[in-house]
C-alpha cells in the first residue's frame, strides 16, 4: 500500500469472475445505448448516456438514490421510452435491431425469451397467487410449451438451481421468505435461457446473510450460464462481487466508468471517491 489517503485501497483485485473465454472473441456488443436521455418535464432522469453491454459481461450501474440509475435501466430495457437516444440489441440471429422501432409483440417476445428483469421487490416480478412451479413455468407456456410434465420437471429443476426445495413447487410465493421469493424471481427469469438480464437492486431489502447467499447464487449462475447482466445497485460491495465493469452515475449523468476493481480501488472522479470512501468502510 503506497498511499493511504482517505480512499481505501485495501481490496485485492483478483477474484471477480472472469469473462468466459468464448465471449471475448465476440466483436459486437449485445446491447448498445447511445445518447440516451430521459426528461421528466424539466427534470432530468438521465442525460446523454452511452453504454455498451457485451455478451457474458456483468455491468454494474451505481449511484445514490435519484442519480438516474433506475431510469437508465428502464430506458435500456424498453420499460421506459427515452426522450432522445437509441438503444440497439443484437438478436439471436445476429441482426442488430433498434429496440424502440420494434413492434410491441416482438419486443414482448424478446423480453420473455432472451431477456430477464429482476425487480427489487419480488412481488413486482412474481405472480404471488400462483404456485412456484407455475411462476417458473409461465415463460415456457408463453412460448408454446404444452407438455405439463415437461414444464413441471423444468420448473422443479430450476427451483433446485436457486436452492428452493422441490417440495415447495406447489406453494405460492406468498408463503416464501423474502430471500426465497427473490430466488424464485430469478428462476422465473432464467428458465428460458436469456442472454441478458436486468436487475434493479436485486439484494435490496434483504438481510445481510440472505443477501450474501443470493449474491453467491447469482455469481454462480451468471458464470455458468454466461449471462450478460446490467445490475443497478447502490451497494458497492454488490457491484464488486458481481460485476466486471462499473458505471458511476450522478445527477443523471455517467461520471466514471471502468473495470470494477479499477473504479473502486483507484476512483478518479470526486464523487466516486466520496462514494467509495463513504461506503467501503467495513
Amino acid at each position: 500500500m503506497t498511499v493511504a489517503g482517505s480512499v481505501s485501497h485495501i481490496e485485492e483485485p483478483v477474484d471477480r469472475p472472469a469473462i468466459p473465454a468464448a465471449d471475448a472473441t465476440e466483436e459486437k456488443p449485445l446491447l448498445s445505448a447511445s445518447g440516451v436521455s430521459k426528461f421528466y418535464g424539466s427534470r432530468i432522469g438521465c442525460e446523454d448516456v452511452s453504454i455498451d453491454i457485451w455478451p457474458g459481461e456483468v455491468l454494474a450501474v451505481v449511484g445514490e438514490s435519484g442519480s438516474g440509475k433506475t431510469t437508465l435501466l428502464n430506458c435500456i430495457s424498453t420499460r421506459l421510452m427515452p426522450t432522445t437516444g437509441t438503444v440497439t440489441y443484437r438478436m439471436r440471429d445476429g441482426q442488430t435491431r433498434d429496440l424502440y422501432r420494434m413492434g410491441e409483440a416482438e419486443r414482448r417476445f424478446l423480453m420473455r425469451t432472451d431477456w430477464g428483469f429482476v425487480h427489487q421487490n419480488p412481488a413486482d416480478g412474481l405472480r404471488m397467487t400462483v404456485s412456484a412451479g407455475a411462476n417458473v413455468g409461465e415463460r415456457l407456456m408463453a412460448t408454446g410449451a404444452r407438455h405439463y410434465g415437461d414444464i413441471r420437471a423444468t420448473a422443479g429443476d430450476w427451483l433446485g438451481r436457486v436452492e428452493i426445495a422441490e417440495d415447495r413447487i406447489d406453494d405460492q410465493p406468498r408463503a416464501f421468505s423474502g430471500g426465497m421469493r427473490q430466488r424464485l424471481q430469478i428462476a422465473r427469469n432464467l428458465v428460458t435461457g436469456p442472454r441478458l438480464v436486468f436487475m434493479d437492486e436485486p439484494t435490496g431489502g434483504l438481510d445481510v446473510s440472505v443477501q450474501a447467499r443470493l449474491l453467491d447464487l447469482l455469481r454462480g449462475l451468471v458464470t455458468d450460464l454466461g449471462l450478460a447482466v446490467v445490475v443497478v445497485t447502490h451497494d458497492l460491495a454488490v457491484a464488486r462481487l458481481l460485476s466486471h465493469r462499473m458505471v458511476v452515475m450522478k445527477d443523471g449523468r455517467v461520471i466514471e466508468t471502468g473495470l470494477t476493481d479499477r473504479v473502486l480501488d483507484d476512483p478518479r472522479a470526486p464523487y466516486t471517491q466520496l462514494l467509495v470512501s463513504s461506503i467501503l468502510q467495513a
Binding site: E104, V130, S131, A134, A142, D170
Partner: peptide, 22 residues
C-alpha cells in the same frame, strides 16, 4: 386487452397448470 392484442396467452395455461398441480 393488450394480451389479447399481442396473443400473449401464456397465462391461460398457467391457470390450467395450477389446476393440474392442485
Amino acid at each position: 386487452r393488450k394480451m389479447h392484442a399481442l396473443e400473449d396467452y401464456g397465462l391461460m395455461h398457467v391457470k390450467l397448470y395450477e389446476d393440474i398441480a392442485r
